[in-house]
Amino acid sequence: MTNPCNNNDFSISEHQKDNAVIVSIVGSVTTDKADELRERLEQIAAKQPPIIVLDISKMDFICSAGLGAIIIGYLKCRHHKGQVRIASPSDKIRELLETTRLDKLLDVFDTVEDALKG
């Protein structure tokens, strides 16, 4: 079984739900994975969806470079007045978002359904 304290697995998947793109980020966003996350978010944002929901329920770690990748996606989305919403963070990741005050920049929701409602 994978140990979440020392897990280096990482994957991204996406699917459309109405006018939103739900992006599931799974595992650990370490520095060497941050570029992959940034590129994927930029690709999605380039299609100009009104809402991008980042489902991070299965994210167990993110470093500053990973946070930076999300911010770049947010800025790119804002160009076309789109929104990036965070959904379902674990307690640790929520604390990280609060500690960095990124919860002031990005709306954080308890569930994907809540994030879709806005």
Partner: peptide, 21 residues
């Protein structure tokens, strides 16, 4: 300070703050 309002949108500069946190 990466948590200052004027720096929140900067993609970089949070490493030392996180170490201290």
């Amino acid at each position: 300070d990466p948590t200052a309002d004027e720096n929140l949108e900067k993609p970089c500069g949070r490493g030392i703050m996180l170490m201290r946190a």
